[in-house]
């Protein structure tokens, strides 16, 4: 057949079936790939009127949220209720890790002073230095993402709350004056939309499932809820970034997020827990580098290998 095909003069003119043959470098994949580089051709200069220090701090906040939540989700690897959920959770963790990588790289490019010093000649890239060589007080993530993973109901509930909030932020951030933030947000919107869909479906399924699954889900919601208020607190950096047209003040997304959360809780037959918000210390919270005890253990596990090999190539 091939010989006949090749001998045919029509082949050179191009046939409609040529596209079926995987060309270029992706012939070894079943269906072809052609992944797109989200930052290809993106202007990386800091826009006028945006303070580089604020931009770096803001990218650290969003990047650390993604990094820490990603790490918590990876704790399910090989432990999820079944193979399909294992892969689903790992996919979500990888999406978030990808967002974290770009955001931390953006932070380092905007203000190199935020990157911890490493021995001369270390091949560790700046985004890895930020992830693996920063100490706890320098992490700017909200405390909701660092809470211990807990059971599957707690995982799904936390993911749902985080995804609703992050999606609202990223949707607005897609029009950021910083081209990198805008590109990361535009790509992230499709990812987090799926995370929210995944988590919301499971939340409703578990809450409307058996007596035990419902008990676990409402327990998870009550234990995570105190950390929700912090998601909408404005740290100094965020309003300044919003004013410069480059960031989003989380206080402004609360109404939209509440509407989505209420809709899903209604479908799940769950009430908003009446519990007091988690306090900070002298008004300092996760965004200021104030974290919970669990976070120290998380960092130790996440950073131990990298810190043991500061000259390592990965």
């Amino acid at each position: 057949m091939n010989q006949t095909h090749d001998a045919n003069p029509a082949h050179e003119a191009g046939s409609v079936y040529d596209g079926l043959l995987a060309g270029e470098a992706d012939g070894h994949w079943a269906f072809g790939t052609s992944f797109e580089d989200p930052l290809a051709g993106v202007d990386t200069t800091v826009p006028e009127g945006v303070d580089p220090g604020d931009l770096a701090g803001y990218c650290l906040m969003l990047g650390d949220d993604a990094l820490v939540l990603s790490h918590r989700l990876t704790e399910w690897c090989s432990n999820a209720p079944d193979l399909e959920e294992d892969v689903a959770l790992a996919n979500i963790a990888l999406d978030l890790l990808g967002q974290a990588r770009l955001l931390l790289a953006r932070a380092a490019a905007a203000d190199p002073a935020v990157v911890p010093a490493l021995p001369d000649g270390s091949p560790v890239p700046p985004e890895d230095a930020l992830a693996f060589f920063r100490d706890e007080p320098h992490f700017r993530n909200v405390r909701l993402v660092e809470a211990p993973t807990g059971d599957f109901a707690a995982t799904v509930t936390r993911l749902f709350l985080c995804a609703c909030w992050r999606l609202a932020l990223l949707e607005r951030l897609a029009t950021s004056r910083d081209q990198v933030l805008a590109a990361v947000a535009a790509k992230g919107v499709t990812e987090v939309t799926y995370h929210r869909d995944y988590a919301a479906r499971w939340l409703v399924t578990l809450a409307q499932g058996t007596e035990e699954s419902r008990r676990r889900t409402s327990t998870a919601l009550a234990s995570l809820w105190p950390a929700v208020d912090e998601l909408f607190g404005s740290h100094g950096v965020e309003p300044r970034m919003a004013a410069a047209g480059a960031g989003v003040d989380p206080a402004t997304v609360r109404a939209d997020v509440d509407a989505v959360v209420d809709q899903v809780l209604a479908a799940a037959g769950l009430e908003r827990p009446q519990v007091p918000a988690m306090s900070g210390v002298r008004d300092r919270t996760g965004r200021d580098g104030l974290h919970t005890e669990a976070f120290g253990h998380l960092l130790a596990e996440m950073q131990a290998v990298a810190r043991a090999h500061p000259m390592g190539m990965w």
């Binding site: 994949w29 079943a30 269906f31 072809g32 790939t33 052609s34 992944f35 079944d82 193979l83 399909e84 892969v87 689903a88 996919n91 869909d197 995944y198 479906r201 399924t205």
Partner: peptide, 26 residues
Amino acid sequence: VGSLHAADDQMALRHARDVYTRRNEG
């Protein structure tokens, strides 16, 4: 491309997305 377990049709679709299209196949 293969098979999987799911509780219902919609979950099967999502599981398929997670398990069989994660390398940009489909």
